[in-house]
Simulated scan of single mutants.
Amino acid sequence: MFPDPSHHPPALDLFLMLAMGHFLGDFALQSDRMATEKCPGHDVTLPWYWWLGSHAAIHGFLVGLITGVPLLGLAEWVAHALTDIGKCRHLYRLPGDQAIHLATKLLWTWLVVRS
């Protein structure tokens, strides 16, 4: 009834899990307030860096959990925060932001699979 998972390349499986985790973190787990107030100058209830740090930490946790590598979680925490700062500064829009995030997940996949 279900396809045999042993026929899937492990890299594809890992990338798909990271991508799904990313969309969970960026859309389902990010409130409207967090999405707005994580940008400098738009913070009202808390300083922006608390919102951004918390949002990026969720992504770091998901990457660490999915890969089993806490240091990749830390790398994701930093990479996600830097990418979102670029979006806050209008260096790119949502499609560019999401492309950068997914490219980062490809990098994590490559690092895990090659080790």
Rank of each mutant, 00 (worst) to 15 (best):
K38Y: 03
L29A: 09
P40G: 04
G53P: 03
A28H: 05
H42A: 14
W110S: 10
L111H: 02
A75I: 12
V113R: 14
V78S: 01
M1F: 10
D32C: 01
G21I: 07
G96K: 13
W48Y: 14
L111N: 02
D4F: 06
P95K: 07
M34N: 14
M34A: 14
R33C: 01
M1W: 12
F27N: 08
H8D: 11
I85Y: 02
D4V: 06
V113G: 00
K105Y: 08
R93K: 11
F23T: 10
H59A: 15
H7D: 07
D26G: 13
F2H: 04
L72W: 11
Q30P: 11
V69F: 11
Q30N: 10
M1D: 09
A75G: 08
C39T: 08
V78A: 04
W48S: 00
A99G: 04
T67L: 02
G68M: 12
G60A: 08
H55F: 07
T83H: 13
A19K: 07
L16T: 07
C39N: 11
H80R: 12
W110V: 12
W108V: 15
H8C: 02
G25E: 05
D13Q: 07
G60I: 01
L71P: 13
C88W: 06
C39G: 06
A28N: 05
H7C: 02
T67E: 06
T36E: 13
H22G: 15
A81H: 06
L18P: 05
Y49I: 09
G86K: 00
P5N: 05
G68V: 10
S6P: 01
P9A: 11
R89A: 13
D26I: 02
F23W: 14
D32I: 07
K38L: 12
H8E: 06
A35C: 03
K87G: 12
M34K: 09
I66Q: 08
A103E: 06
G60V: 04
F27I: 14
V112F: 03
I58E: 05
T36R: 14
L82A: 15
L111P: 04
M20K: 09
A56P: 00
A56H: 00
M34H: 09
D43P: 02
W77V: 01
G25D: 06
L107W: 13
P47L: 03
V113F: 01
P70L: 10
G25V: 09
G21Y: 03
Y92W: 15
F61P: 02
P10L: 04
L65M: 15
L102T: 03
I100F: 05
Q30D: 08
